[in-house]
Amino acid sequence: PPQTPIRAAMTSIQLLRGDLTSSGDQPSANLLTYFKHCTVDPTQDVQKRLETLGQVFSQTFGQAVGPHCVVYGRQRFALGVRLYYRVMEEMLKSEEKRLSVQNFNKLLNDSTFHTSLLACALEVVMATYGESSFKNGGYNHGGGDSAETNVCFPWILNVFNLAAFDFYKVIESFIKADPTLSKDVVKHLETCENLIMERLAWRTGSPLFELLTQEHESGGAEQVETPAN
């Protein structure tokens, strides 16, 4: 039977939390094995980064939606971490199968990869809670006199000082790695992707420009045809 928007949101939240109950808030044994197979074990860096980003996220979430909502920020972050670990493990399994390697040293020691993946997981959590929504601009729990800002995408990029182009890199692999994502959440990520391709990746300072310069200098770019007379 058709659901009211509130009932639909509550169902999505229950499904997300239910799915993540079996996922730990620490890396699984399998994921730790991937970490240990790296030339440089990234385990400690991963955990330190999560502690730092967790504090940044909760505080910034509280500033955005209301000071009494820092606790909600922590709750969202905790769910995001579980999803982050789960998707990371699935991505690595898939890469191991594709590349026949077990040492993902460069990838797992890349801070940008981890930050992008975590940001994507948090975007999924906030989209599920309706806080990041392109339809109604998201909603905030807060009230009172404090100034509230929207936490709709690309808010998460500003929180983590993450380039849109780097966030874009994880989206497709994220969706592939988690077949339980709802149609609405996938649609939301697709909208984020389009926004990045159309506008955000072309902002001043985007790493896309450096990549284009490198491609051009390495002769990778095709020669542009001169205009016909």
Binding site: S94, F104, L107, K169, S173, V186
Partner: peptide, 21 residues
């Protein structure tokens, strides 16, 4: 099920996107 359009080829993955190939 969703109708997300996958752009990566079979031989492409997250490792290449983060310059790890």
């Amino acid at each position: 099920s969703h109708d997300y359009h996958y752009g990566l080829e079979d031989h492409e993955g997250i490792s290449e996107l983060f310059d790890c190939d």
